[in-house]
Write a protein that binds this DNA or RNA. Structure first.
Lengths: 325, 325
DNA sequence: TAAAAATACTCCATAGGTATTTTAT
DNA sequence: ATAAAATACCTATGGAGTATTTTTA
C-alpha cells in the first residue's frame, strides 16, 4: 500500500481515466496502469471495471477512495501542525507529577500559562516519583514535577517550590487545646490522628519527624486513609488531626474551616523539583513553559501561600492565633 | 512521506532505538537512520534527540507518531473491509432514484432487504432521471430507479414496477359527484384542480392524457404545487382534486382519507425501471440486492397495492365505490 | 478508425545492504 | 571499551519511461 500508488488510484477514481490521471500527476499512462494493478493484486479485488473505453470504479474502490482521501488529509494536517509546533508556542505538553505537585502546583501554573498561550494544551499524569522520572528520562513526558531531586544521568532539575508539612485540625478540636504559646508536642500527639497509608510520602515525612524528636511513634491513630483529599475530609469532619502538605490545606485555613496547630517539632520542609532531559532540543511551547515556570517561582509563592509571607525565615510562626481568633 | 519510512519511524519511537527498530523490521540500522533523516528533512524538524547512546523522541515526533498509528490502523481496516466486501453480503449500496421510486418504492425494498442482510447499508439519492442515469453510467451510483427506459450504451435495465396515475379527491368532494357508474370526464374536469409545477413527470403524464382525449386543457386550476406530498396535503385539505401516482396515495385511499375518482380517460400507466451498468463486476451485496428486487417484483406488487389485485387487466375498476361505501 | 488500457522492454533512482567511522558512556 | 548512530559506498528492486499491441466503441 504505497502512498504514490494510492495517489494514482485516487486520481483515476476522480477522473475515471488512467491516461487523464497520468497527465494530472505528470506520470505516463502505463505507470498508472501498473500502480493500479499492483494495488489490485495486493488487495485481491478489482478496483476498476474496464468497460472498453470507459473506466468505472468498483464497490471496493469506493471504500478505498474514502479512506485514502482521509489519509491524505491527515498527512497534510500533521505536516502543518508540525510546522506550527516548530514556529509557534502551540501543541501539547506532557507533564507528569507526583501527588502534591500534580494536584496542587501544576493546576495554577497551567492556568496562568494558558492565559498567555491559549494554543498550548496539557496532558498531566499523576504517578509516583520513580515512575515519573523514568518517563521523563525516556521521553514519554517532557517535564516532571517531583518531590525529590532526581539523580538519573541526563536529567536536569531545578527547585520549583518549597512546602511545609503542617498539623491541621478542625476549629472545634483546636479550641480544646490551649492555643496560647505554641502547642505542646505531647498534647498534640495524644489527640486522635488520621494517618496516610504505608508508602505515602507524607507519612514518611511524618515518621521521620517523629523519629527526629525522640523516636516516639505511639500516636493515637483512629483512621488510615489513602489520599490527601480523604485526610482533609476526615479532619474537616472532626475525626481527628493530621499532618499534611500546607499547600493542600491552605484554602481551608484561609477560610477558617481548618486551623493549623503550631508544632515546631513536626513542621517539616519538603522541596519540589522540576526535571527534564537536558540536551534536548526545546520547541517553542516547552521553552515558553520553562520560562514561565522560572518566572513564576519568583512571583507565585506569594499567590500560593499568602499566609506565609514571612515564614521562610523561622519555622515557628503562630499561625494558630492568626486563624482561630 | 513514505509508508515504509513511517513504519520505521514508529518502531524507533516505540523502541527508542534505531538498531532495535531495524532488528524488529528486518532492516539494517543504517537503513533506519536514512529513513528517519529523510523524514526529518521532509518535515523540517528533528524527530529524535540523539542523546549519546539514548534516543528520545521530540515533540513533533509525538504528534507524527499518533497520526501514523491512526493511518496504519485505517489502512488495516480498509483492507479487511474490502475483503469482507468481496466475500460477504456487506457494504454500502449507492442507489439513486427519481421522486416516485426513491420515495415510494425504494424504502419498502430496502426495509425488506435489510432484514435479510443487516450488513448492507444504503445511500439513496433523489434526483431527476437524467442526472440519475448519468451517475449510474459513470459509476457514482451502483443502481438507478427511474421512470423511463434508459438508452445509454452500457446501461442494462429491467422493469421494476408499474404504477397508474389516478385522480384523487377528499371524501367530501367526492360525495358531491354522483359516484354511480364511473365519473364522467366533464364533471371531473370542472372541479377545482391542484396541479404540479412545470417540468414534473406527473404533470407531463396528465397533460399527455388530456391531449389524448381531445386536446382540452382548460382545467379549473386553483393551485400549483411543487411536490407529490404537497399535492396530497392539498387534496386532503379539500382544496381540490389532482392526478398523481397511485403508489403515493394508496395509504390514504385504504384509510379512507382520500378516494379515487374512476376516470378511465385520465388513468395513465407509468413504468419504473431498474438500471445498472451491464458488464460490471458484481460484488455480493449488489448481487444479493438485484436478486432480491427480481424476486420482489413478483411478490411486492400485492403488498404495495392490495387494492389492485386484479387491476393489471382492465383499467376501469370501480375503486370509488369500494372506498366511499 | 480512434481512443483507451495492457503489455513489453529499458533505465535509473532509491531502498536497502555491508563496512567503517564517529560519538558518548 | 563498548554500544549506538552516522557516514561512505555498493547493489538491485521496482518506479517510471518509451514503444507497441490489444480492445472496443
Amino acid at each position: 500500500m504505497d502512498i504514490r500508488k494510492l495517489e494514482a488510484f485516487c486520481k483515476v477514481f476522480e477522473l475515471r481515466s488512467f491516461s487523464k490521471a497520468g497527465q494530472e500527476l505528470f506520470l505516463s499512462q502505463p505507470t498508472i496502469s501498473s500502480h493500479i494493478s499492483h494495488l489490485e493484486d495486493e488487495l485481491g479485488v478489482l478496483l476498476f471495471d474496464r468497460l472498453g473505453k470507459r473506466t468505472v470504479p468498483t464497490q471496493p474502490a469506493d471504500l478505498l477512495y474514502r479512506t485514502a482521501k482521509e489519509l491524505f488529509q491527515s498527512l497534510d494536517d500533521v505536516q502543518s501542525e508540525i510546522h506550527m509546533l516548530r514556529d509557534k508556542v502551540v501543541g501539547e505538553l506532557q507533564i507528569g507529577g507526583s501527588t502534591i505537585p500534580a494536584n496542587l502546583i501544576l493546576p495554577r501554573l497551567i492556568s496562568g500559562f494558558m492565559r498567555m498561550h491559549p494554543g498550548v494544551t496539557f496532558s498531566v499524569d499523576v504517578s509516583d516519583t520513580l515512575e515519573i522520572l523514568k518517563r521523563v528520562h525516556n521521553g514519554d513526558l517532557s517535564l516532571g514535577l517531583v518531590g525529590s531531586k532526581p539523580d538519573l544521568p541526563g536529567l536536569a532539575s531545578s527547585l520549583l517550590m518549597e512546602d511545609d508539612m503542617v498539623v491541621v485540625a478542625s476549629p472545634a478540636l483546636a479550641k480544646s487545646l490551649d492555643g496560647e504559646n505554641g502547642t505542646p508536642l505531647e498534647s498534640v500527639l495524644s489527640l486522635p490522628w488520621i494517618m496516610r497509608e504505608k508508602g505515602s510520602g507524607t507519612r514518611k515525612s511524618l515518621e521521620d519527624a517523629l523519629d527526629a524528636c525522640g523516636g516516639l511513634r505511639n500516636l493515637n491513630v483512629v483512621s488510615h486513609v489513602g489520599s490527601t483529599t480523604a485526610v482533609i475530609e476526615c479532619v474537616l469532619a472532626g475525626v481527628g488531626v493530621s499532618a499534611t502538605s500546607q499547600l493542600a490545606v491552605q484554602r481551608y485555613v484561609e477560610s477558617g474551616d481548618l486551623v493549623l496547630l503550631d508544632v515546631p517539632e513536626l513542621r517539616k520542609r519538603r522541596r519540589f523539583y522540576l526535571t527534564y532531559l537536558s540536551d534536548r532540543k526545546l520547541y517553542p511551547a516547552m521553552r515558553a513553559f520553562l520560562a514561565y515556570v522560572e518566572n513564576a517561582r519568583e512571583t507565585l509563592p506569594q499567590q500560593l501561600m499568602p499566609g506565609r509571607k514571612t515564614s521562610s525565615g523561622s519555622a515557628s510562626i503562630r499561625l494558630v492565633e492568626a486563624n482561630s481568633a
